[in-house]
C-alpha cells in the first residue's frame, strides 16, 4: 500500500518554526508506524529524529501523537491508520528535535514519588509472603513503561504543568497498594497535595492513551479514596 506521512519537523538549531514534512512511501499494511518512520529516516531524510529501541511496545521510547492520539509508533500498524498519517511530538513537553521531546521533568516527577518499596520491619531470610489476591490488587499498575502517553494526554496537565500527572500517580499506586509496603503515610503525604492527586478531574484521556491498557483513572480513584479513608 502507499501511505503519506505528514510529520511535524522542527530542529531549533536551524528552523525558526515547526513545519510539515510530507513523505510518500510504499509499505506493507502490517508494518508498524515505526517501520515507516525508519524507512523515511533511512532512505529519504537522515535528519528525521525520534527515539526508539525495542520496537514492540515494552521500552516506552517512541510515544508520539499519531493521527492526533498518543500512541507508541511500534505498537500501531499502518493498516489501522489510513492513507494519510499525521505524526506529531507528544503534547505538553518541549520539542527538542522533530518527534523527540524533553522528558526530564516527566521522569523527575516519577522519581519524586518514592517509587521504591519502603519497609521498616526486618527482612525474612526467604521471600515475604503475599497472597495471589494481594498481588492482584496492584497488578495493573506494575505494567507502566513510563512512555508519557497518559500525562501528555491529560487536560489537567496541559492546564497546569506543575501537576505530577497520571504516570507518577500510577507508580505511586503500585507501591501504595502493595501489601508488603510500609510507606503508606509518607506516600499519602506526597499525593495529598494541590499538585498531587487532586488535580485529576477524571477525564479518562489517560486510559484511552495508555499503550499498556492500564486503567489509569481507576488507579487514581483508588488513591483518592485511600487518602480520604486514610488507609489502603
Amino acid at each position: 500500500m502507499q501511505v503519506t506521512l505528514k510529520i511535524q519537523r522542527y530542529n531549533p538549531e536551524k528552523d525558526k518554526a515547526p513545519w510539515w514534512g510530507e513523505y510518500k512511501i510504499e509499505a506493507e499494511p502490517t508494518d508498524r508506524l515505526l517501520d515507516a518512520l525508519n524507512y523515511v529516516k533511512w532512505h529519504l531524510d537522515g535528519t528525521l529524529t525520534y527515539r526508539r529501541s525495542c520496537a514492540h511496545g515494552i521500552c516506552g521510547s517512541d510515544a508520539m501523537q499519531i493521527n492526533g492520539a498518543n500512541r507508541l509508533a511500534c505498537k500501531v500498524l499502518l493498516r489501522n491508520l489510513g492513507q494519510v498519517i499525521t505524526v506529531e511530538p507528544l503534547r505538553g513537553y518541549k520539542v527538542i528535535k522533530d518527534l523527540l521531546v524533553d522528558m526530564d521533568a516527566f521522569l523527575a516527577r516519577y522519581r519524586s514519588m518514592k517509587p521504591f518499596l519502603i519497609t521498616h520491619s526486618p527482612q525474612p531470610e526467604k521471600e515475604r509472603l503475599q497472597s495471589p489476591e494481594d498481588r492482584e490488587r496492584f497488578d495493573d499498575t506494575t505494567k507502566c513503561i513510563l512512555c508519557g502517553c497518559c500525562t501528555s494526554g491529560c487536560p489537567s496537565f496541559w492546564a497546569n504543568g506543575e501537576y505530577v500527572g497520571p504516570a507518577a500517580i500510577v507508580n505511586a499506586h503500585r507501591f501504595l497498594f502493595d501489601s508488603r509496603d510500609e510507606g503508606t503515610v509518607e506516600r499519602i503525604e506526597l499525593l495529598n497535595t494541590v499538585d498531587g492527586v487532586w488535580r485529576c478531574r477524571t477525564i479518562f484521556n489517560c486510559v484511552e492513551a495508555c499503550p499498556r491498557e492500564i486503567n489509569v483513572t481507576r488507579a487514581i480513584g483508588e488513591v483518592k479514596k485511600a487518602i480520604l479513608m486514610q488507609k489502603v
Partner: peptide
C-alpha cells in the same frame, strides 16, 4: 539474588501459599 529482588519489592507472581 531472587530473595534480594523480592525484598526490594519485585512483584513476583505467587503460589497459593504466597511464595514466589
Amino acid at each position: 539474588t531472587v530473595y534480594d529482588l523480592e525484598h526490594w519489592g519485585l512483584p513476583f507472581s505467587r503460589t497459593p501459599e504466597g511464595k514466589i
